[in-house]
Each structure stands twice: as C-alpha cells, then as structure tokens.
C-alpha cells in the first residue's frame, strides 16, 4: 500500500496531494498539466517535495518532519516514462539487464524468460533502441522496469506518445502485466478508456490537488477528458 501526502511549489503552480492506494492497479487521472507527473516523480524520488510524507507499506520513503529522504536509486520503484527513455548506447538486452546490474541482483533466467515472452520482445534483444518502433520501445521499457523487481510500478502515460493502432497493440500487454506481474501499479493517464481497462481504483487530480478518490465510477464525471 502506498500512502502519499505531499506539498510542492513549482513556480506559480502548487501541488498539495494526499491519497492512499490499496495495491493492485490505481490510476492517477486528470487533464494534462494537473500535476500528475510531478506527483509520480515525487514518489519515484526524482523530485523532492517541500513538505509531506510518502510511505510504501511500512517503508518510509520521504518524511520532511523526520528528515527522511530515500534517494531514487534506493527506492526500488520501477518507472515507465512517457517517452520510454531507453538507453540509446545499449542493446535491448543490456537495457533489460541494467536494473539488475545496478541493484546488484543475481541473475534470474526464469523471470527474464517469463517477462521477455510476456511482452513478446525476444526478437528485439540484440537490437538498439534507435531501431525500434514506438510500440516496441515501450514494451522494452515495461520489461526494463519489471526486471529490476520493483516494489511498485509507476506508469506515466506510457501510451501517450503512440498512435491509436499502437495503443491497441500495447493495451493487452499492460493488462497481462497487471494480472501476471504481481506488482502494484500506479497508472497515470488523462484517457478514461485506458484506465477503464486497466485500473480498479481511481484518484482524480485537478490543479495539483486530489479532487476525488474511489472506483471507476469517477471516470465519467464531466470534464474528465
């Protein structure tokens, strides 16, 4: 379970978000510019909140009162970015192994094999990211985040940079990830359709604040798109 209660001022924009997720797949839902990515960056440790507390299960990741701030590289939180952010100088196989190397995890060929076939990226392993299509790149990014054995998976609009056919191609993989990877997920999107297929809990963000939290019924409220 993830508990977030953070405040952050970014120029004129003020984020003050408080919510809890119950495990499984939760969606951060709201228009572009509502502050969703900033909130996710704070969870990942890439942005430091001005005040507040972030805890994953009983593990405090950030607490301004207690002066706790676990650096990003020690949080073990997988992050799939909107633009993939694969390392262009490494092959797909090396990208997939990167998290394991850096986290000092022993090789786990069975898990590797399972994720590679789940995402259907076996044929891409020797290639470099520059030669992949957008959809292939995102699938590799999912695999890279999963193979570091994260305690939580953050997906920040992972389909936003793809055209519609590519989105439809990726969605089933995401649904399989949710069902088979057994990692709690935070799925960020402004598309109600994607969330409907993937998430069970919805946190609606508006203007840097949590406007509502609950089930999928929150999606068809006016102004959701």
């Amino acid at each position: 379970m993830l508990a977030v209660d953070v405040e952050k001022r970014l120029g004129e924009f003020q984020i003050a978000a408080k919510f809890e997720t119950t495990g499984g797949a939760a969606a951060l839902f709201g228009a572009s510019g509502a502050g969703k990515t900033s909130i996710v960056n704070m969870i990942a440790g890439l942005v430091t909140p001005d005040r507040g507390r972030i805890a994953l299960d009983d593990n405090v990741l950030f607490d301004s009162a207690a002066r706790v701030n676990v650096p990003a590289h020690r949080r073990r939180i997988g992050y799939v970015f909107q633009e993939g952010r694969l390392f262009p100088h490494l092959t797909v196989a090396q990208n997939l192994d990167y998290g394991r190397w850096m986290s000092g995890l022993p090789p786990d060929p069975a898990e590797h094999e399972r994720i590679v076939s789940l995402l259907d990226i076996g044929a891409l392993l020797p290639r470099r990211p520059g030669r992949l299509s957008g959809g292939e790149r995102q699938r590799v990014a999912f695999g890279r985040a999963l193979l570091m054995k994260p305690r939580l998976l953050l997906l920040d609009e992972p389909l936003a940079s793809l055209d519609r056919p590519r989105k439809l191609e990726i969605l089933p993989y995401l649904a399989r990830l949710r069902d088979e990877a057994e990692v709690p997920m935070i799925y960020v999107s402004h598309q109600a359709g994607e969330i409907l297929r993937l998430a069970s809990q919805v946190i609606r963000i508006e203007d840097g604040r949590v406007q509502a939290a609950g089930g999928l019924e929150l999606l068809d409220v006016d102004g959701a798109h």
Binding site: L46, A72, F81, A145
Partner: peptide, 10 residues
C-alpha cells in the same frame, strides 16, 4: 531524463 531513468533503476 536518461540519467533520471538510470537512477530509478538503482
């Protein structure tokens, strides 16, 4: 942003 990605990977 690639450096950020690397730090989330440990």
């Amino acid at each position: 942003r690639l450096e950020d990605a690397a730090s989330t990977l440990g």
